[in-house]
Write a protein that binds this DNA or RNA. Sequence first.
DNA 1: CAAGAACCCATGGAACTTCGTCGTATTCGG
DNA 2: CCGAATACGACGAAGTTCCATGGGTTCTTG
Lengths: 295, 295
Amino acid sequence: MELRRIRYFLTLARTLNFSQAARELKISQPALSKAIQQLETEFGGRLVRREGRLTHLTRLGERMHASLQEVEDAAQRAERLASRIAKAETACIRIAIMCTIDPGMVGRCLAQFQQDNPALAIELLDFTAATIQEALLNGKVDVAIIGSPVEAVPRLRTYELFQENMVVSCGAQNRLAHRESIPLKMMAEFPYIDRLRCEFREMILSTVDRNDLSLNVVASSEREDWIKSLLAQDHGISIMPASSAISANLKSVTLQDHDLLRSVYLTIPSGREDHPSVQALIKHARTYNWSGAQD
Amino acid sequence: MELRRIRYFLTLARTLNFSQAARELKISQPALSKAIQQLETEFGGRLVRREGRLTHLTRLGERMHASLQEVEDAAQRAERLASRIAKAETACIRIAIMCTIDPGMVGRCLAQFQQDNPALAIELLDFTAATIQEALLNGKVDVAIIGSPVEAVPRLRTYELFQENMVVSCGAQNRLAHRESIPLKMMAEFPYIDRLRCEFREMILSTVDRNDLSLNVVASSEREDWIKSLLAQDHGISIMPASSAISANLKSVTLQDHDLLRSVYLTIPSGREDHPSVQALIKHARTYNWSGAQD
DNA sequence: CAAGAACCCATGGAACTTCGTCGTATTCGG
DNA sequence: CCGAATACGACGAAGTTCCATGGGTTCTTG
């Protein structure tokens, strides 16, 4: 059973005349005859009674007519859907951004990219570290911007974009707020607000550990906005990337004696670089002046 | 867009692996690759991202998937319907019988025919003279048994089956009931019940007219059963085919001086004789011993 | 009424297109 | 370097189309 033959049959069922149907279909009459015969062989019975000018459907033909019309309708819907999508679909890059990355700095980079490529739509999607790898691999997103390289997944290709300092962040009323920098060991004196489930938590904790210190954790949360809210109310202090620490009622203080750095990476499944738009995005992100944008 | 390609795509969408899908479809991998490429050309965009072991659907592919599944489902329903019909459909002859013909005599003929052809189903349909011609021509019925030949329709082929006498019919209490026969002019003395819309009415009226008689019509109806009911209650007398006049509480009386005959014909659109079952029916009906069945 | 025109559909053969397979190249990952 | 996955090119098979033709019916016309 093929759609072409179904269309032939439906036209014939409407005209009840092989020659006229063939003209409408812009094929020759013998071609139509053969196609109908083929359908009849498939269905195991005559669809049409040929009686000179009295051509008409058999009972089998009548009963199949409705069913075949449904097939044709479904096919037409699919075709219309395809052309609608093809028309509407401007090229679109879907970018996963790890939730620990401040969208501001990435946003500036992407804004500039879109100025250079105005036809390209960009879709930003928020992902956690756990789901970002899966989304990359199954095609839900095209590229990802992450705070720590996904380790031991050979299919993913990772480019480092920039590094930024981790800073101590506290509320504007905190007694640290007017200082430029503090030593790491001073951290222990302050109540600490711990951000869970972020890729730099381990880095912070191990650094503290290595210096035989311990943090006085008074609160913890997965959500950056809640952490910031607690900081603003002076519940404690926390350590976070410099770009995240910029917020109303928050002050950043650098660490004197330790260079806590976190890197931001662009990750893409190997093999997907061939898309020209993705290629352009990678090139733009890697040549972008990130340090200039950090202030 | 062709169903074969749609099936290929659906299998590929399930396996997300060209080679495996090709194996399931029992075609080679290059054939599948080409088919999918062709679909992608038709739809104007990639359906599948080929990334080594990470083959997956693009957004276009995902959106088309549901739509194409519907097409495939509709096609499968049509196929199942066809095979169900083909399996269930015992050959069936549809026979239109004009309402003025007593089904008893025709029924005996058909019963014998079915004994000889047990695999053949017969569908009897009741038609009026006006609609029988159309039903024959548009294929609603295969053959018709009628009381008067359809005039001036060259597409119809007519065979005379038998002739039968018209008789006077009256109730059992009527004073004619015990007679064997009456002269035509005696008809005028009795109230007459006129059957409308039947093919022999004109024949009766013209015969009466030619003999300078006139009937005393006291009631008339299109329906044979109502006529018979009126006759049984002795409302009057009527003239009808001998085979119709056989009924409880009715008596038949022949006409002494006139041979009123009506013929019964089998009619078929020319060109439809080629069906073997219809052919057999025609042969059977024409060689059937109708006069022997009249008693 | 018989011959001819017009129409309807089926069949056969030739040209063409499409489809599938095979062998091969390429790319990627282990 | 090998295996897996896909693409490419060539070739044979199958299917599709067209044209020409023929049988059959209906309509027209002399």
